[in-house]
Simulated scan of single mutants.
Amino acid sequence: MTATTRSQTKQNQTRVEDFEPKEENKAQGQGSKSKRAATTKRKKETEPRSERKRTQSDNQTNAEDAARSTKKQKQKQPSLKPEEDVSPAGDATKPVLINRAPVLQLWAACVSQALYPVLPWATHLSIGSAISTLCAIAKGRAIGLIEKPSDDPAERAEKERKRRAAEEGADDEINVMRFRLLLKDGGAIVSGRPQKANEVLLRNKFGQGDEYERVKRAMEEAIDTWRNRGQEKEFNVKAFHMYEEFRPSVQRGQGGWGKKGELRPEKIREVVSRD
């Protein structure tokens, strides 16, 4: 209800009949009526004008104070609509609608961070991107959406040359989730070139809200349970299988290629703590 500065006291409208005497009292009251009116008139005339003005001002001030007090009390009352969700935990378990590739990239980056904590986060993102790319290529070939490697001897020889050149110029070699990867210039090498890491792009794939942070936090908390037990090597062997258990569920084959499914952060913790 809109607050108003008007006084809350209800006043009846003044009517002409309020000043008319009743029929049975007309005869008796006519003589005294004029006398009372004269007395009232004299009293008003003798009353100081400044006193009457001050009384009216005080009455107006009291009415305004009462109106402000009422308005202040109304403003303090919370205005919650019936359909508003006031539970802060409502979004904590909300599933994330996303396809599998970004989930695998983030998971592989978190696993790499646990195994090689001295490397910067940008390198871990590159490692995750490399693993996600390699898996996408393998999956695409398996379902017939990506051509299989050529059997041409010249093309195979060129590919082998690039692989050796990459190995010779690599800065380091790591093993994440059974993937042997070479690092160069802070990135994981795929097809002879370092894989670029773009966290902004990856974050946007999870949505415009806090989905990325919620999923990343769930992954890191789940991985910490293994780090606290000092079983990083065993975890590295099982990490890809864990991903296969909690990843978004989509249709098999070509029907599920690039499609989105539901990812539940609480399932990540459940799977990792169980394995």
Rank of each mutant, 00 (worst) to 15 (best):
Q113V: 01
R100I: 02
L106A: 07
A122W: 01
G128C: 09
L104F: 00
V118P: 00
A109R: 08
W107S: 10
P120S: 09
A92Y: 05
A108Q: 04
A92V: 13
L97Y: 14
L119R: 12
A101N: 05
H124T: 08
W121V: 13
Q105A: 15
H124F: 10
L119D: 14
A101E: 15
T93E: 13
A130N: 07
L125M: 12
P95G: 11
L106E: 08
S112V: 05
W121G: 04
L97T: 14
T123R: 04
Y116H: 14
V96D: 00
V103W: 00
Q105E: 15
A130T: 05
S126C: 06
H124K: 07
G90M: 11
A108W: 02
Y116C: 04
W107K: 07
P117E: 11
D91S: 13
W121E: 13
T93F: 13
L125S: 02
N99H: 14
L115F: 04
G128Q: 04
A122E: 13
Q105G: 06
T93M: 12
R100K: 15
C110N: 11
V96C: 12
T93P: 00
T123C: 12
P102R: 05
W121M: 13
V111L: 08
A101H: 08
V111F: 03
R100G: 07
S112G: 14
A114W: 02
K94T: 14
D91N: 15
V118C: 08
A101G: 05
S129A: 15
A109Y: 02
P120K: 09
P117Y: 10
V103H: 03
W107N: 06
I98K: 03
T93Y: 09
L104R: 09
S112W: 02
I98Y: 07
V103Y: 06
T93S: 12
A109H: 03
S129E: 13
